[in-house]
Amino acid sequence: MKLDELRKIRERAEAELRLRGGPSRVKIVVGMGTSGIAAGARQTLRAILDEVARRDLRDVVVTQTGEKGLAAQEPIVEVHEPTRITIYGEVDEAFARRIVTEHVVNGRPLSERVVEVREVRDDQPAH
């Protein structure tokens, strides 16, 4: 492993960041508790990271969290936007990619597999 490669990656990434500017627009959170992992959350998380990378979505942050007591509907994916949080359940690899393309890129939340939509007030930023 050549740690020096990281310096080049950093230089490129910082140059991109200067061009783009601005904070992240959307945060995607994947539930990775035991039941989530058993239900395929690893593949879900990978699919989201892959889709975000392939589409070069530099204003999207992807994180993970533990269990949320929604074991029956794992894998769970939350899309945090400034005005609302959309929670999807039973998100397999294919649906995860659709969340990225339809909801995050095209701004059209999906109507299937929605567990909950929470409105966020202005004084309670999503992230």
Binding site: L6, I9, A13, A53, V62
Partner: peptide
């Protein structure tokens, strides 16, 4: 050690992810 070298670039940056997996 990796964060030291990439500064504020997140580990989820596509190129960093590739680097880590490799």
């Amino acid at each position: 050690e990796i964060r030291e070298r990439i500064g504020d670039i997140p580990l989820t940056h596509p190129e960093v992810l590739c680097f880590l997996e490799e």
